[in-house]
Computed example of a mutant assay.
Amino acid sequence: MSKTSLQSNRPLSPHLQIYKLIPTMVMSIVHRITGGALYFGTLLVAWWLIATATSEAQFNLVSWVLGSWIGLLVLLGYTWALIHHMIGGIRHLIWDTGRGLEKHTTTRMAVASIFISVALTILIWIVAFVIL
C-alpha cells in the first residue's frame, strides 16, 4: 500500500500548553483535587472516632497529633477542602438547573467560590477557637 498524507493533515489534540487557564478550568481542577483530599481527611476523622470509642490513651494520642501545629495545619486544609468542595457542588447543582451557564456568570461563580470558601473556613476556625 502506498502511504497517504492523512496522518500529516490531522490536527493535534489540544493540551495544557495550548489552553489558556481560565477560572472555571482552575476551579474544576481544584474541585477534583479537594475531592481526593477529602478521602484522606475522612480517614483522620475515622481515626479520631475510633480512638474516641477505644480508650483514653488512644484518644489522647490522636488529640496530641491533631493538636500539634502540623495537625492543625492539616485540619485547616481539610476544613477548606470540605467547604470548597461543597461550594463547588452547589455551583454544579445551580448549573444542573440550567441557570448561570453564561460565560461571564460561570467565571464570576468560579472566582466567588474561592473567596467564599476561604472566608467560610476562616469564620469556622474563628468560631471553633472562640468556643474552645
Rank of each mutant, 00 (worst) to 15 (best):
R108N: 07
I83F: 09
W64M: 04
L93M: 15
T107Q: 03
T52W: 14
I70K: 07
Q58T: 08
Q7A: 15
F59H: 08
Q17S: 14
H92P: 00
A46Q: 04
A46N: 06
L49W: 14
I87Y: 01
L38I: 15
Y39L: 15
S63G: 06
V127A: 13
V26D: 03
I29V: 14
W48C: 01
T105P: 00
M27Q: 14
H85C: 08
T106N: 04
V130L: 12
I94P: 02
A37N: 03
T4D: 10
P23R: 05
W80K: 06
L6Q: 10
G89I: 03
A112H: 03
A112E: 00
F40W: 11
K20C: 01
L120P: 01
L6P: 02
V74E: 02
A51E: 08
G89N: 05
T24Y: 13
G77I: 10
M86A: 15
L123Y: 03
T97E: 01
A128V: 13
A53W: 08
G35Y: 04
E102S: 14
T24Q: 14
I29E: 02
I124D: 01
A112S: 14
V26F: 15
W69C: 01
S8E: 09
E56F: 07
I18W: 07
W47N: 03
T107W: 00
V65M: 11
L49S: 11
T107S: 08
F40V: 15
P14M: 11
K103C: 00
A81I: 02
A119R: 04
T121F: 01
T54P: 01
F129K: 12
T107F: 00
N60A: 12
S55H: 09
L101C: 02
H104E: 05
H104L: 01
W95G: 10
L6F: 08
S55D: 07
L6H: 07
A37E: 09
L21V: 13
S8H: 07
Q7D: 10
T105F: 00
Y78Q: 06
A46Y: 13
H92L: 15
D96F: 11
S2N: 08
G98A: 06
I33C: 08
V130N: 12
A57D: 06
V30N: 09
K103T: 02
L66S: 10
W69N: 04
Y19I: 11
W64H: 04
A51Q: 09
W47R: 07
P11S: 15
V26T: 11
V111Y: 00
S5V: 11
T54V: 13
A51F: 07
G77K: 06
V62G: 01
V30R: 02
R108I: 02
M109I: 00
H84R: 03
I33E: 07
A112G: 00
A81M: 11
L75N: 11
A119F: 14
I50M: 04
H92Y: 12
Q17N: 12
K3E: 08
G71H: 05
